[in-house]
Deep mutational scan, measured.
Amino acid sequence: NQASVVANQLIPINTALTLVMMRSEVVTPVGIPAKDIPRLVSMQVNRAVPLGTTLMPDMVKGYA
């Protein structure tokens, strides 16, 4: 199973992502692939993302 990107903490709306905010985990449904973590750094979330939430492409500005 492919690992997805999961929030390692509460990420407030419009926050630029950093490595410490994200972890990889095998979850259902599948979200953004963990291999894309380096690409996500500095991108902003367009909503508040609670701890443990799988990041989906529509949550990150400029990803999709």
Results as ranks from 00 to 15, higher is better:
residue 37 I to K: 05
residue 30 V to C: 10
residue 36 D to R: 03
residue 10 L to K: 08
residue 60 V to E: 00
residue 32 I to T: 01
residue 63 Y to T: 03
residue 36 D to G: 04
residue 9 Q to F: 15
residue 2 Q to L: 14
residue 43 M to I: 03
residue 34 A to W: 14
residue 49 V to F: 02
residue 58 D to E: 12
residue 48 A to R: 11
residue 38 P to D: 08
residue 19 L to N: 05
residue 13 I to Q: 08
residue 10 L to Y: 08
residue 60 V to N: 01
residue 32 I to G: 01
residue 46 N to T: 12
residue 24 S to P: 08
residue 37 I to L: 14
residue 19 L to A: 06
residue 6 V to A: 04
residue 18 T to W: 03
residue 58 D to K: 08
residue 43 M to R: 06
residue 44 Q to I: 09
residue 1 N to T: 15
residue 26 V to Q: 10
residue 33 P to F: 12
residue 28 T to N: 13
residue 6 V to W: 02
residue 40 L to R: 00
residue 49 V to G: 01
residue 45 V to Q: 00
residue 59 M to Y: 10
residue 64 A to T: 15
residue 49 V to M: 05
residue 30 V to L: 12
residue 54 T to Y: 02
residue 57 P to I: 10
residue 43 M to Y: 09
residue 13 I to N: 10
residue 55 L to F: 11
residue 36 D to K: 04
residue 14 N to K: 05
residue 29 P to Y: 12
residue 23 R to W: 03
residue 6 V to Y: 02
residue 20 V to P: 05
residue 7 A to P: 01
residue 31 G to W: 02
residue 29 P to A: 05
residue 32 I to K: 00
residue 10 L to N: 08
residue 34 A to M: 11
residue 55 L to M: 12
residue 8 N to I: 06
residue 17 L to F: 02
residue 48 A to S: 13
residue 47 R to C: 05
residue 56 M to T: 07
residue 50 P to Q: 14
residue 61 K to V: 11
residue 9 Q to Y: 14
residue 24 S to L: 07
residue 20 V to C: 15
residue 40 L to P: 01
residue 3 A to C: 15
residue 14 N to Y: 08
residue 47 R to A: 09
residue 17 L to C: 02
residue 17 L to W: 02
residue 3 A to M: 13
residue 22 M to P: 00
residue 62 G to I: 05
residue 10 L to W: 10
residue 11 I to G: 01
residue 48 A to E: 09
residue 30 V to H: 14
residue 51 L to T: 14
residue 7 A to R: 01
residue 40 L to M: 09
residue 38 P to Q: 10
residue 26 V to N: 11
residue 22 M to E: 01
residue 57 P to N: 14
residue 64 A to V: 14
residue 29 P to F: 08
residue 48 A to P: 07
residue 34 A to Q: 05
residue 27 V to T: 11
residue 59 M to E: 03
residue 39 R to S: 11
residue 8 N to Y: 06
residue 33 P to K: 04
residue 49 V to Q: 02
residue 20 V to M: 14
residue 19 L to S: 08
residue 2 Q to P: 15
residue 55 L to A: 00
residue 19 L to G: 05
residue 11 I to Q: 01
residue 29 P to H: 12
residue 31 G to I: 02
residue 10 L to A: 13
residue 54 T to A: 06
residue 6 V to P: 01
residue 31 G to Y: 01
residue 16 A to I: 09
residue 44 Q to G: 05
residue 41 V to F: 09
residue 31 G to T: 01
residue 26 V to F: 09
residue 62 G to D: 10
residue 19 L to T: 04
residue 49 V to P: 02
residue 50 P to I: 09
residue 62 G to Y: 13
residue 36 D to L: 04
residue 45 V to P: 03
residue 49 V to L: 09
residue 20 V to T: 13
residue 17 L to V: 04
residue 61 K to E: 07
residue 26 V to W: 10
residue 14 N to F: 10
residue 55 L to P: 01
residue 2 Q to I: 14
residue 34 A to K: 05
residue 8 N to H: 14
residue 2 Q to H: 15
residue 24 S to W: 08
residue 53 T to C: 14
residue 13 I to R: 09
residue 27 V to F: 02
residue 37 I to G: 04
residue 23 R to I: 06
residue 35 K to R: 07
residue 63 Y to F: 11
residue 49 V to D: 02
residue 50 P to A: 09
residue 5 V to M: 02
residue 16 A to W: 13
residue 12 P to W: 12
residue 38 P to T: 09
residue 60 V to H: 01
residue 55 L to Q: 00
residue 32 I to A: 02
residue 34 A to P: 14
residue 20 V to A: 10
residue 55 L to D: 00
residue 29 P to N: 08
residue 48 A to M: 12
residue 8 N to R: 13
residue 39 R to T: 10
residue 28 T to W: 05
residue 52 G to E: 06
residue 23 R to L: 04
residue 26 V to T: 09
residue 43 M to A: 05
residue 29 P to Q: 07
residue 56 M to W: 06
residue 64 A to G: 10
residue 44 Q to V: 11
residue 9 Q to N: 05
residue 25 E to L: 05
residue 6 V to E: 02
residue 45 V to F: 01
residue 9 Q to V: 11
residue 61 K to N: 14
residue 21 M to Q: 04
residue 47 R to T: 06
residue 49 V to S: 02
residue 25 E to Q: 11
residue 62 G to R: 06
residue 2 Q to S: 14
residue 5 V to I: 07
residue 39 R to A: 09
residue 22 M to Q: 00
residue 63 Y to D: 03
residue 36 D to C: 07
residue 13 I to H: 09
residue 46 N to A: 11
residue 10 L to G: 09
residue 20 V to D: 04
residue 4 S to D: 01
residue 58 D to L: 11
residue 41 V to Q: 08
residue 12 P to F: 08
residue 8 N to L: 05
residue 19 L to R: 07
residue 48 A to I: 08
residue 46 N to P: 03
residue 11 I to V: 07
residue 45 V to T: 13
residue 45 V to H: 02
residue 3 A to D: 15
residue 38 P to M: 06
residue 18 T to P: 00
residue 63 Y to W: 13
residue 48 A to L: 11
residue 3 A to Q: 10
residue 29 P to C: 11
residue 8 N to E: 11
residue 61 K to M: 09
residue 14 N to R: 07
residue 31 G to A: 03
residue 61 K to W: 13
residue 29 P to D: 12
residue 51 L to Y: 14
residue 11 I to Y: 02
residue 42 S to E: 08
residue 1 N to A: 15
residue 6 V to F: 02
residue 48 A to W: 06
residue 10 L to P: 09
residue 37 I to Y: 03
residue 34 A to R: 04
residue 39 R to Y: 13
residue 15 T to K: 05
residue 10 L to T: 11
residue 1 N to C: 15
residue 30 V to Q: 12
residue 18 T to F: 05
residue 23 R to G: 04
residue 39 R to I: 08
residue 26 V to G: 05
residue 43 M to G: 04
residue 52 G to N: 12
residue 54 T to M: 04
residue 40 L to E: 00
residue 18 T to R: 09
residue 8 N to W: 09
residue 56 M to F: 09
residue 20 V to K: 13
residue 64 A to S: 14
residue 46 N to V: 08
residue 29 P to S: 06
residue 52 G to I: 02
residue 25 E to I: 04
residue 64 A to C: 15
residue 12 P to C: 15
residue 56 M to Q: 13
residue 5 V to S: 03
residue 52 G to Y: 07
residue 17 L to D: 00
residue 45 V to I: 09
residue 43 M to E: 04
residue 59 M to P: 01
residue 3 A to P: 13
residue 27 V to A: 06
residue 24 S to K: 06
residue 61 K to A: 08
residue 11 I to L: 12
residue 36 D to H: 08
residue 59 M to K: 02
residue 46 N to M: 15
residue 31 G to E: 00
residue 55 L to E: 00
residue 48 A to D: 07
residue 46 N to K: 10
residue 6 V to M: 07
residue 18 T to G: 04
residue 59 M to T: 06
residue 22 M to L: 08
residue 7 A to G: 03
residue 51 L to F: 11
residue 23 R to H: 04
residue 25 E to M: 05
residue 4 S to P: 01
residue 56 M to R: 07
residue 50 P to F: 14
residue 21 M to A: 05
residue 5 V to C: 06
residue 33 P to H: 14
residue 60 V to K: 00
residue 59 M to C: 12
residue 9 Q to T: 12
residue 41 V to Y: 07
residue 60 V to M: 04
residue 7 A to S: 07
residue 64 A to P: 06
residue 41 V to S: 04
residue 45 V to E: 00
residue 36 D to W: 04
residue 53 T to H: 15
residue 27 V to Y: 02
residue 30 V to K: 04
residue 20 V to L: 14
residue 16 A to T: 07
residue 31 G to M: 02
residue 63 Y to A: 03
residue 23 R to P: 01
residue 9 Q to S: 08
residue 47 R to G: 07
residue 9 Q to W: 13
residue 43 M to N: 04
residue 31 G to Q: 02
residue 6 V to K: 03
residue 30 V to F: 14
residue 44 Q to L: 11
residue 50 P to Y: 12
residue 13 I to Y: 08
residue 37 I to Q: 10
residue 57 P to H: 10
residue 1 N to K: 05
residue 35 K to E: 15
residue 37 I to P: 00
residue 25 E to Y: 10
residue 40 L to N: 00
residue 33 P to Y: 12
residue 63 Y to G: 03
residue 58 D to S: 10
residue 58 D to Q: 09
residue 39 R to F: 06
residue 16 A to R: 06
residue 37 I to H: 03
residue 50 P to T: 15
residue 41 V to T: 07
residue 9 Q to D: 08
residue 17 L to N: 00
residue 31 G to N: 01
residue 64 A to K: 08
residue 53 T to Y: 15
residue 34 A to S: 10
residue 20 V to I: 08
residue 43 M to H: 06
residue 33 P to Q: 08
residue 49 V to H: 01
residue 62 G to N: 11
residue 29 P to T: 11
residue 44 Q to M: 13
residue 35 K to Q: 15
residue 24 S to I: 12
residue 30 V to W: 12
residue 13 I to P: 10
residue 25 E to R: 05
residue 25 E to P: 01
residue 33 P to D: 15
residue 52 G to T: 03
residue 21 M to E: 02
residue 18 T to C: 05
residue 18 T to S: 06
residue 50 P to R: 12
residue 57 P to Q: 15
residue 29 P to I: 08
residue 35 K to G: 14
residue 28 T to F: 08
residue 56 M to Y: 09
residue 57 P to C: 15
residue 61 K to S: 12
residue 4 S to R: 02
residue 38 P to N: 13
residue 38 P to R: 04
residue 22 M to W: 02
residue 28 T to V: 07
residue 24 S to V: 09
residue 1 N to M: 15
residue 18 T to K: 06
residue 55 L to N: 00
residue 3 A to R: 04
residue 48 A to Q: 14
residue 7 A to Q: 00
residue 62 G to H: 10
residue 24 S to G: 10
residue 4 S to G: 05
residue 37 I to R: 05
residue 43 M to C: 04
residue 19 L to D: 04
residue 30 V to E: 15
residue 10 L to S: 11
residue 38 P to W: 12
residue 44 Q to Y: 14
residue 7 A to F: 02
residue 58 D to Y: 12
residue 64 A to R: 08
residue 42 S to P: 02
residue 51 L to D: 13
residue 3 A to G: 07
residue 64 A to N: 13
residue 54 T to S: 04
residue 38 P to F: 09
residue 47 R to K: 14
residue 12 P to A: 12
residue 49 V to N: 02
residue 62 G to V: 04
residue 61 K to F: 10
residue 28 T to I: 05
residue 8 N to F: 10
residue 49 V to A: 06
residue 56 M to C: 15
residue 12 P to V: 06
residue 48 A to K: 08
residue 48 A to F: 11
residue 54 T to I: 11
residue 45 V to G: 01
residue 53 T to P: 01
